[in-house]
Simulated assay, not measured.
Amino acid sequence: MTGTERIRTDIAHNARVWNYWLGGKDNYPVDRAVGDRVTRFHPGIGEVARADRAFLGRAVTYLAAEAGVRQFLDIGTGLPTADNTHEVAQRIAPDARIVYVDNDPIVLTHARALLTGAPEGVTEYVDADVREPLRILEAAARTLDLTRPVAVMMLGILNFVLDTDEARSIVRTLMDAVPSGSHLALTHPTLEPELGGEGNVAAMAFWNENATPPITARGRAEFASFLDGLDVLEPGIVSCASWRFAPASEVAQFGAVGRKP
């Protein structure tokens, strides 16, 4: 089955709805309809999407400019927008190597847009599911040197792995395969009220009844467990909007970066 044949236009899909919230055009009427309904439940959801994207830019900038990372494994790529991982990294380090991973067929059809980068570097795309970490590592090893530090980017992806033990196992498998000096960048939605997470309750219930894939939120302790064994960088686990930035308001999406000692 080709990627085009797998595309469903009769049911909303996360990558396309997220694209809609970010102001993109790679979405269908069903995605816009569901996106608007979710926004009624959670009026700040567009702000969450923009804050998550801004976190990506700040995290990649830190990793490339300050931590000296030259290899990035971006799992749960989503649809191309402005300032994708390779664009941010290769502006700082033109020789940076990036592997994108996603299993959404519409992302696959747009992958060619992700494969244009600095000529000194390398940008590749892998069609795989986050639940297949060994397959991801095998494919990534064709482009990345896994004996040298890698930044593993998992922004807004573990919330689609509904079982927390499975999500932890995925993270452990990935981070066990990369050496000291590697980093893990994470974002994840939460229901915690101090970040305004109450709005996620009805929004996620509606999403799970009307769109795909199903999603879950997690609390601070569960989110922190994904970073076990890593040195969590300052400012720790915060709203992704607040990671190394002073926002006008926070969003109900945790963000953190950990370094493998």
Score class of each variant (00 low, 15 high):
Lys25Leu: 05
His86Asn: 04
Asn19His: 10
Asp31Gly: 03
Thr39Ser: 14
Gly23His: 12
Asp36Glu: 15
Arg32Asp: 05
Thr85Gly: 00
Val34Met: 08
Gly57Asp: 12
Asp74Asn: 11
Asp31Ser: 05
Gly78Phe: 15
Arg37Glu: 14
Arg53Gly: 09
His42Asn: 14
Thr85Asp: 03
Trp18Pro: 07
Ala82Pro: 00
Ile11Trp: 07
Asp10Cys: 10
Ala12Lys: 04
Ala67Asn: 04
Asn19Pro: 01
Gly78Ser: 09
Arg53Glu: 11
Phe41Arg: 01
Ala12Leu: 07
Gly35Trp: 10
Gly35Ala: 07
Asp10Tyr: 06
Ile7Arg: 02
Glu66Asp: 14
Tyr28Gln: 00
Arg58Lys: 04
Arg50Val: 11
Asp83Leu: 09
Val69Met: 10
Glu66Ala: 10
Thr61Ala: 10
Val60Arg: 08
Gly68Val: 06
Arg8Leu: 12
Gly76Glu: 08
Arg32Asn: 07
Tyr62Gly: 03
Phe72Ser: 06
Thr9Ala: 13
Thr4Pro: 00
Asn84Ser: 03
Trp18Thr: 02
His42Trp: 11
Thr81Val: 11
Tyr62Val: 06
Pro43Phe: 00
Val38Trp: 08
Asn14Thr: 14
Asp74Gln: 07
Gly57Met: 05
Pro29Trp: 07
Val30Gln: 01
Ala67Glu: 08
Arg53Gln: 13
Thr9Cys: 10
Gly44Tyr: 00
Asp52Tyr: 00
Glu87His: 13
Ala59Ser: 11
Ala15Trp: 15
Ala82Trp: 15
Gly35Glu: 03
Arg40Val: 15
Tyr62Met: 13
Thr85Ile: 01
Val34Gln: 02
Ala82Asp: 13
Gly68Ile: 07
Ala15Asp: 08
Asp31Arg: 06
Gly24Ala: 07
Asn14Val: 10
Ala49Trp: 01
Thr77Val: 05
Ala82Ser: 13
Phe41Gly: 05
Gly57Thr: 12
Ala67Val: 12
Arg50Phe: 11
Ala15Ser: 13
Thr85Tyr: 08
Thr39Ile: 11
Gly46Met: 05
Ala89Ser: 09
Glu87Val: 06
Arg6Gly: 07
Glu47Gly: 13
Gly24Pro: 09
Ala33Phe: 06
Phe72Leu: 10
Val38Gln: 01
Tyr20Thr: 01
Gln71Met: 08
Gly78Glu: 07
